[in-house]
Computed example of a mutant assay.
Amino acid sequence: MRADAKKNYDHLLAVARAVVKEQGADASLRDIARRADVGLGTLYRHFPTREALLEALLRTSLDEMTAQAAELETSSAPADALVTWFREAVAFTHQFQGVTALMTAALDDPKSDLHASCVTVRAAGARLLARAQDAGKARSDIDGAELFALIAALAWLGDQPSLNRHADHLLEIIASAILTDRAGNGGQAQRRTRGRS
């Protein structure tokens, strides 16, 4: 990419990041172009779809979450690594309101611009969960897909003005429940196959 094209691309992304933080994942592309002082056609040349724009915005954060999971695998105890990453993943979802629904849909759509990044970050969380399970520190009756579902549920809660004051407390309860060997689990439950991370 030429230097001037890269500068324009970076400018569009910076403006888009600000607009999406204000308006959520359904932010107006026309508004992004207007604020960036470019035509809508210029925006579409760089980002042909809304998903392509969101993928570009989210890719850095998702890559950072994946890298953080890898670092936590080697630097922290299994339970601490899992809970730290879980909290960071929930915090990430609050950067852009409504993005969790797009990420969830992208997981099941290999043609989505978000698919690869979402699959990679979910697998990173699943590895941290498996490591904690192998160490006997996390429930054995949960898998990576369910861990992602809990993150999505907490993201939704945080997006609700009437409920978001409970989000931090409920995050702590859920994190504790993931690490707790409940009576129904009894420590003897057959671990599910982790093929569907």
Rank of each mutant, 00 (worst) to 15 (best):
L157G: 02
K7A: 15
S162T: 11
D37V: 09
E73K: 03
T180H: 15
A105N: 07
N164M: 11
F92A: 03
T120V: 01
I151F: 06
A145G: 14
S61Q: 06
N8C: 08
K6A: 12
T84F: 01
C118V: 11
P48C: 04
P110T: 06
V38A: 03
A189F: 04
R127G: 05
H46D: 08
L54I: 06
S61M: 07
Q95R: 15
H166S: 15
W85S: 06
A135L: 07
P161Y: 00
T100F: 10
R122Y: 01
R196I: 15
D143F: 07
A18N: 03
Q188W: 10
R59W: 05
S75G: 10
T49H: 02
C118F: 11
L179S: 11
L150V: 00
V38M: 03
A177Y: 09
R191F: 05
L40N: 02
P78D: 14
G186W: 08
D31Q: 14
Q133W: 06
T74Q: 15
V15Q: 00
A175T: 03
A77Y: 02
E64G: 10
A124L: 10
P161C: 02
T193A: 14
F47M: 03
A152T: 00
D31L: 12
A152D: 14
G98C: 03
Q188G: 10
G39F: 07
L147C: 05
A16V: 04
E88W: 11
P110W: 06
L170C: 12
E22F: 00
F47E: 03
R2F: 08
D80F: 01
S76H: 12
I178H: 01
L53S: 07
Q97S: 14
E55G: 13
F92G: 02
Q95K: 12
A145F: 13
L82E: 08
L54P: 00
T120N: 13
L107C: 05
Q190W: 07
P161A: 11
H166N: 11
R122K: 09
A149I: 01
G41R: 07
D143N: 15
V121P: 13
Q97I: 09
S61D: 15
K21C: 09
T180Q: 12
A79V: 04
D4N: 09
S76W: 00
Q68V: 14
A126T: 09
H94G: 05
D4A: 08
T49Y: 00
E73C: 04
G186Q: 03
V83N: 05
V119E: 10
A52P: 03
S28V: 05
D31P: 00
D31M: 12
R122G: 00
A5S: 12
E71P: 02
T104D: 14
R35T: 04
G187W: 02
L54C: 04
H11L: 12
K7H: 15
L150P: 02
L171N: 04
D109M: 01
A189D: 03
A124V: 09
W85R: 11
A126R: 07
R17Y: 08
S197H: 13
G39A: 11
L107S: 08
S176C: 13
E64N: 07
A56F: 03
H94D: 10
L171W: 10
D141W: 06
M103P: 01
G98P: 02
V15W: 03
E146Q: 13
H115Q: 04
D141K: 04
A189R: 08
P110N: 06
A124C: 10
